[in-house]
Design a binder for these strands. Structure first.
Length: 131
RNA sequence: GCGGAUGGCCGGGUGGCUGCGGGGGCUUGCCUCCGAGGAAAGUCCGGACUCCACGAAGCGACGGUGCCGGGUAACGCCCGGGCGGGGCAACCCGACGGAAAGCGCCACAGAGAACAGACCGCUUGGCCACGCCAAGUAAGGGUGAAACGGUGGGGUAAGAGCCCACCGCGGGGCUGGCAACAGCGCCGGCACGGCAAGCCCCACCGGGAGCAAUGCCAAAUAGGAGCCUCACACGGGCCGCUUCGGCCCCGGGGCUCGGGUUGGCAGCUAGAGGGCCGGCAGCGAUGCCAGCCUUAGAUGAAUGGCCACCCCGCCCGAAAGGGCGGACAGAAUCCGGCUUACAGGCCAUCCGCGCGA
RNA sequence: CGGGCUAUGGCGCAGUCUGGUAGCGCGUCCGUCUGGGGGACGGAAGGUCGUAGGUUCAAGUCCUGCUAGCCCGA
């Protein structure tokens, strides 16, 4: 859909306010996930984060993965919701434009770990990833 | 009070801040409304809805269902009834058609395993007499999951439905019931072991695929290949000296085939819909009528995060209080069932035992 | 959304159709041969047949429900 892509290019131009970063673009293509999987990664007790810098630039993008190992549908959905929430809270300030991030849920921990703790861990992991 | 049976219900609540999906509104970034389940699950049945195939009917193959009656859009579901089994009872359970249509199987043990037959025996007779032979017999013993009707009496050389009574079984009759079936009396003297969740027979049912169905739009490979047809108007080629005529390419239309990547829209949520309170018919499932309320539609896929109070459970504590936790589980076209999972709690009816009046 | 396959000793597989004895190879253990190792030979142990019911005298096998894993089509 050309119209939508044109709009995305506008917002990614750099002049947009911080509100754009409040809801980062969601990764939808399998190829994007595979590209991130080949890039750098950081492990934390609650989740795994992968990140890569896209050659073409653009906004912050983020994707979420919870495999069957995490549990049944309820456990997977709950883990993804918590990952989305910490991404929404942390990425606008800690994420870098032009980067793709993938957050991967882990069995048990992602759904049970303290929420504030996971936010700090994401900030620390992103710093390591960028550096 | 203790124990039990059946039917039904709830599945944490309230408020605040901040986010997500969808609808609507307008002043285009704000407001407002709605937003998971009883199983949304497993995908085991039955439908609706789309597309494909098909002249009708019959027969066959394959698959399914299987006591009778009713309910239903339909069902393998539900209700009522019958029969059989379990329980002191309330009540529960049952793949519950046919084994005299045919084939097959019944290991081991045992004399003998489906058609009769005789190991130990019993009785009679004979003899070279503590044994052998012949005839009769199938009551008793032993084996087995199962042994050719059972119990009692008569009878007999010993026995045997050989005869009798009761029970069982089979046949036909009457009565009650729509029926499954039940009851009553009559006849037969026993023939017909089990397995059909082995093949099979009988009766009934069933076309295939699935919302990634299907339809439309846009971009793009590239305006591809084949067949039929229309027209020889333009252009090219061939036959022909030319006009003209015919044929082929090309062109218009139709059909088929091949390659075939994304994106959007429709389908897409109001339907045999659910809930509450009534009325009528019915034992009931259910049907009819009336009123009110309610009604998720995502597509890398929406319900999250934090806080406060209350409820419940566990732990620590003398208490105040503190800490941890909240069953099973997440819509994907929709509906009716089935099956499976489920912390804790509530309500109603009924049964047995004990105590009291 | 629809369809199929598998589950048996530690590992890989037979046996299931056609019901009565669970078998094969590798591995493990013991012994012998060798000075020792390897190897060979001989012997032995080891299986709730995924799970819960049912049919049957009898179930790994037949039927039904469930669990786990794998594969295929749109």
């Amino acid at each position: 859909m050309p119209g939508v892509e044109a709009k995305v290019d506008e917002t990614a131009g750099g002049e947009s306010p911080a509100a754009v970063f409040a809801c980062p673009e969601i990764l939808k293509k399998r190829a994007d996930f595979l590209a991130c999987a080949r890039a750098r990664r950081q492990h934390t007790p609650g989740f795994v984060v992968q990140g890569r810098r896209r050659a073409e630039g653009g906004p912050v993008r983020v994707g979420f993965t919870c495999s069957k190992k995490v549990g049944n549908a309820v456990a997977r959905n709950r883990a993804k919701r918590r990952l989305r929430e910490i991404a929404r809270a942390v990425l606008p300030e800690a994420g870098r434009p032009g980067w793709d991030y993938v957050l991967i849920g882990r069995a048990g921990e992602t759904a049970a770990r303290d929420f504030a703790l996971m936010q700090d861990e994401l900030r620390a992991a992103l710093a390591k990833l960028h550096g």
